[in-house]
Design a protein around this nucleic acid. Sequence first.
DNA 1: CTGATGACGGTGC
DNA 2: GGCACCGCCATCA
Length: 125
Amino acid sequence: MKVNSPVYGRICRVVEQIPPGKVAAYGQIAAIVGNCTARMVGYAMASLPPDSPVPWQRVINAQGKISPRADHESTEHQRQTLMAEGIVFDSQGKTDLRRFGWRGPQLEWLLENDFDPIWAASSNE
DNA sequence: CTGATGACGGTGC
DNA sequence: GGCACCGCCATCA
């Protein structure tokens, strides 16, 4: 990532837990990170280089849509990447979070990385 | 230090 | 369902 910040670091570690074929909302990531807001997550993603190892493309907004930004081509690339992972978008460019929404990290991971265990995935995958 | 900014989200109309 | 506000707060100039 571009800047060295403890907060951004925690955000990125959580984002890295999102498996292929799943997506998470900015607010969801923020809740897991704790002491952080959706805007922080969005800003952190914006600061990442396009070739970052962090799967930033799996983070979308709470409406199940890819957040529009100045660089339209980047948005399109994100959509293509997610479709390649199996995510399906409807005619409105929305994806069904009930089907593709990430349930959260595993309890063990949360505990080992000092995150609040309340956000653990409720059951299996 | 101060003010502007932003890949968001909840509320109210 | 959609749209306009406004709070959010780490970063940056």
